[in-house]
């Protein structure tokens, strides 16, 4: 997966989000070992200190853990990963609802519009 970093937001929080996404989508599966900080930083073309900060944040959130001698791993707790997945989904949906709101659709209208589009897509596909 390519790293996509926007220029107007802190790099560190974007790294956190993208690593979360990689874990949730199984690119880094539960229990799997992560590359070294330096390698990950080089891959994303960012400063190793920034990558370190992002990884530490994910560690304190419990999504990653590190073992002193052998490196950093994705948690084996599948529940924890599912929780992250749900959190990310909730963020996306809230964002979507807010944007629809700005367009002038309230929640019910948004949901019915969504349903209609999904139905149409089913018929066309």
């Amino acid at each position: 997966m390519a790293w996509d970093l926007k220029s107007d937001r802190p790099i560190y929080s974007q790294l956190v989000e993208q690593i979360q996404l990689m874990v949730v989508s199984g690119i880094y599966a539960a229990g799997c070992k992560l590359p070294s900080v330096r390698d990950m930083a080089a891959e994303a073309s960012v400063n190793p200190n920034t990558m370190q900060r992002a990884l530490s944040k994910l560690e304190s959130d419990g999504l990653l853990y590190s073992q002193r001698t052998s490196g950093r791993f994705v948690t084996e707790d599948v529940q924890r990963i599912m929780q992250t997945k749900n959190d990310l989904a909730a963020d996306l949906i809230n964002d979507f609802i807010q944007k629809m709101n700005r367009l002038g659709f309230d929640r019910e209208q948004t949901v019915s519009l969504l349903n209609r589009m999904i139905k149409e897509e089913g018929q066309n596909g």
């Binding site: 220029s7 107007d8 937001r9 802190p10 790099i11 560190y12 929080s13 920034t50």
Partner: peptide, 13 residues
């Protein structure tokens, strides 16, 4: 760099 982006909401550039 991240403080600038956080506080100002824009890139260093």
């Amino acid at each position: 760099v991240d403080d600038i982006r956080e506080k100002e909401g824009k890139s260093v550039d």
